[in-house]
Each structure stands twice: as C-alpha cells, then as structure tokens.
Amino acid sequence: MFGRRRPQDIDDTDIDETPDLTADEDQETDEVPADDTARWDAAFARDEGPFDISEVDLDADADEVRRVDLGTIIITPFQGMTMQLQVNRETNAVQSILVGDGQSALEVAVFAGPSKSSMTGEIRDEIMATTTRQGGRCQAVEGPFGTELRRALPVTGPDGKPAMHLSRTWLVQGPGWVLRGVLLGKATFEVDNDEAQLALFEFFSNIVVRRGTSPAAPGSLLPMRVPEAEG
C-alpha cells in the first residue's frame, strides 16, 4: 500500500526562495451546488494517501525509501525538492512547510480535526468567505483529493502593477486531523498540465500524519518540529 510511488533518492533537502506567485490572469468564479462538493468528497478515499500513522509500516527495514520526520507529519522527499520551514518567531514552532520542484510549490500544514466527522466543508466555507472579503475570487471544482478550491486574490506585482495571486487548496480529513495543501506557481497557472503538478501531487499523497494523543480543539494548528540532522 504505502510507498507505491517510490521516488528517487536525493542527497540533500535544500532551502530555496519562494517562487513567483503572481500572474496577470483571472479565474472565473461559479456557484457550485453543495450536492456536487459532497459527491466529489465522497468519491475520494485515502486508500492511496495521505495516510495516518496507524495505516502504514515505517519500519526502516521494510523498504529503502528515505523519509524526513517532522513530528506531526513524515514526508518523502523527491528528486530536486526544495524545502522551507515556516516558523512562528514567537513560539519557534514550525507551522508549515513549503516544498517546491523549481516551478511550482506546495505549502503543507496539519490541523486538529474531529475524530468521527469531517470539517473540510466548514474550512472551505471559511476560505471562500475570506477570499470574498479580500476582494478575490474562489471556485470549487473536483480535484484529486475531493473538492478543490481555486483562489485568485488581487495583489501588487513586482513591477508595481495590479496582478492576481493564484492558488489551489487541497483538504484531506483523517482520524482526528485535517491536512491542508496550498498549491502555488506553475501548477496553478496551468491547471490542465498534469506534469506541472505530478511531483507535488505524489508528495502530498505520500505524507503520513502522526496526530498524537495531546488534546487539541478542532481547527487548531498542530505544529511540526525541525527535523534532526542526519549523522
């Protein structure tokens, strides 16, 4: 089950700059019936990830896949991957990670969720409402992990001209957690280009969430930790 997409080994997980996330194009916004989003969500199963720690065997002797342990998530680097840790300066906790393939990037964060129900619909409603308040546009479509949100927010580009900041949001509900991935860069400009999102799609699919037993209110951020240096 786990490890079916076996990435090539890499020598280092590099730190790089965030890619340019602006574009001069808009996205259409359509009202989507709730029945459609429910159907899209129901059609997605986590059989091929992302996974809960209870669903996989991460014994080092079980395979030769290299992984990086960030506490609440365990990731599988891919060839040429760059990574940034998004750290809260006040608490020094890792709030999210930003991984990239040179043209696109994916910001990953994990939140506490209810154990027997889903709150992804509630989160999506909040994202859409926030986008509207900020003068942007948000469209719900069928994505690779159920309902996907495609957002366009007005920003000022590097040249000082108005532009649109485009993103795609993936939300996956697991036992007691919600994993969020925000896709940026080329994979948002070329949504029909499967090659542009393949590496990040497989990366997100291979994430393993370790929720832990500490109590946390649904919707609260589950911080990560800085990975230990390899000896």
Rank of each mutant, 00 (worst) to 15 (best):
A199P: 08
H165T: 02
G135F: 01
V99L: 06
W170Y: 15
L183I: 10
V178Y: 01
T13M: 13
E122W: 06
G160E: 11
V155L: 02
V110C: 00
L149K: 00
D41I: 02
E28R: 14
G176P: 06
V209T: 13
I53Y: 07
D12S: 12
A229D: 13
L184M: 13
A38R: 15
W170I: 01
R180K: 13
L183F: 05
F78G: 06
G135T: 03
M164K: 14
A140I: 00
F78S: 07
T131Y: 06
P77T: 09
Q86V: 15
E142C: 02
M83K: 13
D14A: 13
D63V: 08
A216P: 08
L179V: 10
M164C: 07
D159L: 12
Q197R: 15
V87F: 07
I53V: 14
F145T: 00
A105N: 11
S214R: 14
G212P: 05
G100E: 09
D36Q: 14
D30T: 06
I10S: 10
P162D: 10
D24W: 10
R4D: 10
D20G: 10
D57S: 12
T131L: 03
L166D: 01
F204D: 00
R67V: 11
D52K: 06
L198C: 05
L200T: 07
G157F: 10
R6K: 15
V191I: 15
A42E: 13
P154S: 11
D159T: 14
T169D: 04
